[in-house]
Design a protein around this nucleic acid. Structure first.
Length: 271
DNA sequence: GTCCATGTTCTTTA
DNA sequence: CTAAAGAACATGGA
């Protein structure tokens, strides 16, 4: 469920429930969702105050008053929910934090997500590329120039740029008029500039609409996002392109379902 | 039963 | 050696 806009929305909805509050009790129902495995996570966070909840890439980062940090990654099926005390738990509820007069829960059926303990160490995100809302066209161009892969799998690579997943790569490439199979290192500077602008526009709009609920995604208050109603290509195969009426196509690229307009998204740069 | 899924990481191949 | 392609992870819904 989670790409940058969805994770940002979850962060935004967790903040009122948790920021400045003490974690009074911790119920970790599956220890194996915490990395590294030898950390006593409940003991580390019980009684600590949550100073801030922020987002880096698709990670939800918690800073505690003792300087320790940890992050939650939602994986494919993870979600957070703020509940009244005693609300019946659903299947696959792995963690319950008792905060103020509420419970903050982490639920993840497929368990691709989890909790990572960071401690107080300074560098912890060196494996991640730059944030898409901050990146310049020049920066993105320099990174794309280093790979011969197709632009779509390149943009999905979190070492190259973070935050984008299958939905927002397809939507961004469509708005930029770039075919997903184009070689990343063969894009022209003007195309990369447009792509950079389109990525930012799409992500900002998606955040305004509280993300895309294409399957089961909801924010921590159980509210659905609405950006799925504004998708131009993702899951729109067969429907007429918004700009040229050509039916949207769906192919498999890099093992991922990929949606694009065969007319608007050119396979070769203009002469 | 089959196929597919908003993600990441490990293994295999070239 | 490196980069890229493919498989794997675990569960549920169509």
């Amino acid at each position: 469920m989670p790409e940058l806009p969805e994770v940002q929305t979850v962060v935004n909805t967790l903040q009122p429930a948790m920021a400045g509050q003490v974690i009074r009790a911790v119920d970790l129902r599956r220890r194996d969702i915490v990395s590294p495995a030898d950390i006593d996570f409940p003991q580390q966070i019980t009684g600590k105050r949550v100073i801030s909840i922020t987002r880096r890439a698709k990670r939800i980062v918690f800073l505690l008053n003792d300087g320790n940090r940890f992050y939650i990654h939602l994986g494919m099926s993870g979600h957070m929910s703020v509940e009244k005390i005693g609300t019946p738990t659903i299947k696959h509820t792995h963690l319950i934090l008792h905060v103020a007069r509420q419970e903050v829960r982490f639920v993840d059926p497929r368990r691709f997500g989890g909790i990572w303990w960071l401690g107080k160490e300074q560098p912890w995100d060196t494996d991640l590329g730059p944030e898409p809302l901050d990146i310049t066209a020049k920066q993105l161009a320099a990174r794309l120039a280093k790979t011969t892969r197709a632009i779509k799998p390149a943009l999905l690579d979190q070492k190259l740029i973070v935050g984008l997943g299958n939905i927002y790569v397809d939507e961004s490439l469509h708005q930029a008029g770039i075919h997903p199979t184009r070689r990343a290192d063969k894009l022209r500077p003007a195309e990369v500039a447009k792509l950079t602008r389109c990525i930012k526009t799409i992500l900002r709009q998606a955040i305004e609409h509280n993300g895309s609920s294409v399957r089961t995604y909801r924010d921590a208050n159980g509210k659905w996002g609405s950006f799925q109603n504004l998708h131009r290509v993702y899951h729109c195969q067969g429907k007429p392109c918004h700009r040229c009426k050509t039916p949207i196509q769906q192919i498999v690229l890099g093992g991922r379902s990929t949606h694009f307009c065969p007319k608007c998204q050119v396979t070769k740069p203009h002469a």
